[in-house]
Structures are given as structure tokens and as C-alpha cells.
Amino acid sequence: MFPVVYSDYATSILSHLKQQGIDVGEMVSTSGLPSDYQQTESTYLPLRAVFKLLKVTYHKLGNEKGTELIRKALRKHIVPNILADLDDCETLEQALDKVILLIQVQIPQSQVSLTPLGNGFIFSRRKTLDTDDSAFIWSEVFTLWIMIELIQAITRSSWLPKQVHVQSQSCSDMIGCFPSQIQFIQAREMSGVIIESALLSQSISIAITQRDEDEEDFGMHYNVISQTYSALRPYVLELKFDLERAAQIIEVSKRTLQRRLSQHGITFRQLRDNLIADIALEQLQKGEAVSRVAVNVGFASVSQFSRSFKRITGLAPSRIALRHI
């Protein structure tokens, strides 16, 4: 599974940064996110880029203000969207079981679980620890706050865990992002919050927040290829978008990317051509001139673009443009 994450996680954070009057351009660039993140219709973004965004957000705002912004983004966007799918759950345990399935859609390679631990349970996420990744601890901070905010929203309480586990070897940088009464246990196999057994069996009544009208229910239908398309689409018009660059974006080897594409009957060139054709089609449908679209997607001439577009779609770009005059 490619390391990608639902794009709402990044766009909600960036939206709140902009509301505070912060110029997010440099932060987007430093994180490795696509510069047109607001315009892209992608469903997934590279996971590493979102982790880096968390890191630069905390470095810019500090622990207290960074945490305040992250919690606002969670409460405004991420948590309500998850709650909307929990209306048939009767206990916290049932709700968290369903949350795990939903998170596996939003962060496909995640290993989230609810398992017994001592006299309670641990609601946790396990990720391969990269000791060279300075953004890893901020991903743990974000993970813990997602868990806490979800449980607070589901139980309609101000619940806080008495103890949390983290994978990082040192938790000194993240302790300041949480209330002082929470005990941290570092260097564990997974990151998570300890939940009392009695709380899990507690009856709940989900308060549903209306979803945005333009939000689509992406469900469980995104497979490896659709995730790859979504993650790579914002980058495909880069000057040097080749197999090596694509593999770098989604954090796999070139050989792995080729093999996985081959398993789905597609080559890298076909993937790249299809992505470019998709972007071109979108621009044509918005009324852009064929000549302008040809330049936008990197072709030296209109005739070259027209031949390529017709080969992929079966239609001449001029016919698409005429339909939308």
C-alpha cells in the first residue's frame, strides 16, 4: 500500500493557518505539498508531505498555538466527517471499531487497532519508525489528538487519557502539546491512548454535524491505483516528472512502483499520459482554448497535443472545447 493520506487532513490545517493571516506558500513548499493544493481535486496526498506540514506548523506557531490550531482543524473538519458515519453505533467500543475502518480508508496504510491492555484497552496506531524522520514525532502528536478529539466528541465529554504510549524514543518535544496530567510512556511498539473498560461500554448518542454539500462519500472504493493517481496528479506537470520523481513522491522504490502498476495492467508512461489527459480534459471542459491547454500541459504544439489527447481519450480536444462554448 502506498503511503498516502486523505487530502482533507492537509487542507483543513492550511485553511486555519490562512484564517490567522499566515502566508502558507512557504510552508506548502517546505512540506513538499503541491503548490496548487487548493485547486487540485485529488483525494489523497503523500503522507510524508502532510507529516512535514505538521512539523513546520508547530515550528512556526510553537507547541501551545500549534496544538490549538490542530485541534480547531480536527473539530471543524475531520471529526465531524467521521461522526457522520457513526450514527448507528450504540457504545463507544462499537464507534471506535467503525472509526478504525474509516481511518483505513483515509490513511490506507495505517495500522489502527483497539486491543486489550492491562485493565483497559489501547486505541492505537502503529507505523514503521523512521529514526531519521524529524517529522515523525509531530505525526504522533497529531495521531493522539485525533484519538482524543474523537472520543470527546463521541462521548460528548472533556475526557482525557491518564496515559498515552508513543513510539518515539524521546517524548520531551511532544509533552508540551498536551495537558500536564497525561503520563507518557515512550519507546513503545505503537502510539495510542489508554481507555478504561467502563468507558468503552458506555452508551452513546452521536451528534451529527451536517456535511458540506460538495463533499463526496468516497467510501471503500479507492484501490492502489486510484490512490496513486490522486497522490501524483498535483505533481504530474512538473518539468521533470519521471518514474524516479513519482516513486520519490509516494515513497517507494522505482522497481516497486513499476511492479504494482504492472499488477494492475498499466505502465508508468500510461499513468503519466492519463493524468495529463485528465488535467487537459478538465481545463477544456472549463472553456479554455485548445492552444492554451496545450501549453498548460507541456506540449510544444497544438497538433502534438491533439494527437496525444485523441490517442488517449478517443476524442479530438477541439470537440470537447466546442461542446462547452
Rank of each mutant, 00 (worst) to 15 (best):
S253N: 05
I279S: 08
F178C: 04
V50I: 13
K98M: 08
R75C: 04
A277F: 03
Q39V: 00
I13K: 05
L243Q: 01
F142A: 13
V112C: 14
S303D: 11
V50W: 07
Q39H: 10
L101D: 14
R188Y: 03
I185Q: 11
K254V: 01
L281A: 03
P161Q: 12
K65D: 12
I107K: 06
S7E: 15
R292M: 11
A198M: 13
R255K: 10
D214C: 02
E93H: 11
R245W: 03
S113T: 14
Q258F: 01
S301W: 11
L160R: 10
V224E: 15
K98T: 11
T267Y: 02
R211Q: 11
S139F: 12
V293Q: 11
T267S: 04
R319S: 08
G192H: 05
S15K: 14
L33V: 01
S158A: 14
G287L: 04
E215Q: 14
R260Y: 10
K76C: 03
F51P: 00
A153I: 06
L232E: 02
C89L: 13
T67L: 13
S197F: 04
A73Q: 10
M190I: 00
I249Q: 07
R156F: 03
K127A: 04
L45W: 06
S201A: 15
S168Q: 07
Q248A: 15
V193F: 06
L54H: 11
V99M: 13
K286S: 05
P3K: 13
V24R: 01
L86C: 01
S318A: 12
D278C: 05
I175G: 00
V99P: 01
R245V: 02
L114E: 05
L83H: 07
D217G: 01
F2G: 00
M190H: 07
V166H: 06
I312M: 06
L17E: 12
G118N: 12
A135L: 08
S110Q: 05
D278H: 09
F184K: 02
S191T: 15
V297D: 04
V193L: 13
V50M: 07
R71G: 00
K55H: 12
V50K: 08
I204A: 09
S197P: 05
E213Y: 08
Q109E: 15
K240F: 07
I204N: 12
S113N: 14
I325H: 15
V297S: 04
G62Q: 06
S12M: 09
H221M: 10
P234N: 10
F2H: 08
G314S: 07
P46K: 11
S203K: 14
V290Y: 10
S262R: 11
L150V: 01
I320S: 06
D217E: 14
L129T: 01
R255W: 06
Q285L: 12
